[in-house]
Write a protein that binds this DNA or RNA. Structure first.
Lengths: 109, 109
DNA sequence: TACCGGTAGATAGTAACACTGAATAGTGGT
DNA sequence: ACCACTATTCAGTGTTACTATCTACCGGTA
């Protein structure tokens, strides 16, 4: 992972995970694998798990422990109402930033 | 400044400032004022100055001390060749992230 | 003179977040 | 008994933006 990407993910990775969870429930290992498929090649596993614990403590997700056939039990996370509100805020913030950067990229001061 | 925006600016603010400097030279006070006009209403002045010192130490900008009629001398920053390369890298990283988020926002897993 | 607002920059300490590296645990196959 | 894969956790580190404060220069005003 480039240092640039590491810094840029701050605040964004949380939104990405919430967005994933807005579509379907998922557990940590699964989310990490999905992120890697999407080109976030070197996302650290520990990072995702820490993030999940964080959003759980903030009350954005509900958790269910589900047995796995292939290993230890999974913690399946699903977005709740508060999480959806927070995700909405995330998209607003992202959109603002994205528009400003789009303008800058096109050469407009 | 929302906490969300604060986190999201990490890694991005540096790119924004480099992008500004790619268009024209500027000094800290001026950059802070410009950012506020653009809607980054509560960017802390200290943040911009610290960032400028950082990119100077990394060799992305050249500095000239220019006397001001209205106050203490200004430190005018201009992007050099290394800074332009770094800015290119920033735009690549940003584009990658932006595309992924665009997909997520449109409901695609 | 003394003071204040606007201009301009610097800095010590704090909080938040992603990363590193390692550990723990369950299951199935050899 | 060992290994690979699945699955989660955690202590310690580095980077970044913020808070709050400080220094400093100039012009205008009481």
């Amino acid at each position: 992972m480039s240092k640039q990407m590491t810094e840029m993910l701050k605040g964004v990775l949380e939104g990405i995970v919430l967005a994933i969870l807005s579509g379907r429930s998922a557990y940590g290992y699964e989310i990490t694998a999905w992120l890697r498929e999407q080109g976030f090649s070197d996302i650290a596993e520990g990072t995702v798990y820490a993030l999940l614990i964080r959003i759980e403590q903030r009350g954005f997700v509900d958790v269910a422990k589900v047995p796995s056939e292939k290993g230890p039990p999974r913690k399946v996370y699903s977005l709740n109402a508060q999480g959806r509100r927070h995700l909405d805020e995330f998209w607003k913030t992202w959109s603002f930033l994205s528009e400003r950067l789009e303008q800058l990229h096109k050469g407009g001061t």
